[in-house]
Computed example of a mutant assay.
Amino acid sequence: MLPPGRTITFRAWRAGHRYVPLAEVLVYLGPFVVDSAWQLEIEEWLGGGDLGAIPPEARLSTLDLLALIPPSVQVVDGVFTAWAGSARVVVVEAFDSTSWDITSTDERILTALADRYPDAHDLPT
């Protein structure tokens, strides 16, 4: 688990039936996670690829993650954890393909996403 921090959530579906893909979330996290290593726990996805073949202990660079999961992939249920060495930077969770839940102790990360997605709000702890 992360040390005490905050979790925000925002809708994964936008007006006009537009899905917010993981790639888009990563773009807005970019400056904070560009040098991070990511662990993936993907339970369900739509849109192709063999994402389930990635072992949970594997760590991928941000660029490798972006290449692996193109914008056409819809993550239904999955957890993506960014690491800087042995410290967790952020946890991005797709919940039932309806929302993205973002947990971090770095308020800059949460602010950047809340600025981009005005429906973002705190999840109760």
Rank of each mutant, 00 (worst) to 15 (best):
G5H: 02
G5N: 07
G5M: 07
A12M: 04
R14W: 04
A15P: 02
H17T: 01
H17F: 14
R18P: 00
Y19E: 06
Y19D: 06
V20Y: 08
L22M: 07
A23G: 02
L26H: 04
L26G: 03
L26W: 06
V27Y: 14
Y28G: 06
L29I: 01
L29R: 08
G30H: 11
P31D: 15
P31S: 11
V34C: 10
W38Q: 09
W45A: 13
G47H: 02
G47N: 09
G47W: 01
G48A: 03
G49Q: 05
D50F: 06
G52Y: 10
G52T: 01
P55S: 15
P55N: 14
P56S: 14
A58Y: 09
R59G: 01
R59P: 00
T62W: 02
L63V: 11
L65D: 07
A67L: 06
P70R: 06
P71W: 00
Q74H: 14
V75D: 11
G78E: 02
V79D: 15
V79T: 13
V79E: 15
F80I: 12
A82C: 04
W83R: 02
W83L: 14
A84R: 10
S86H: 01
R88W: 03
V89D: 09
V90T: 05
V92S: 09
V92Y: 05
D96Y: 01
T98F: 13
S99A: 14
T105I: 10
E107D: 15
R108I: 04
I109F: 10
L110H: 06
T111E: 15
L113H: 06
L113A: 10
L113N: 07
A114E: 06
D115A: 15
R116H: 11
Y117A: 04
Y117W: 15
H121G: 14
L123N: 03
P124F: 05
T125M: 05
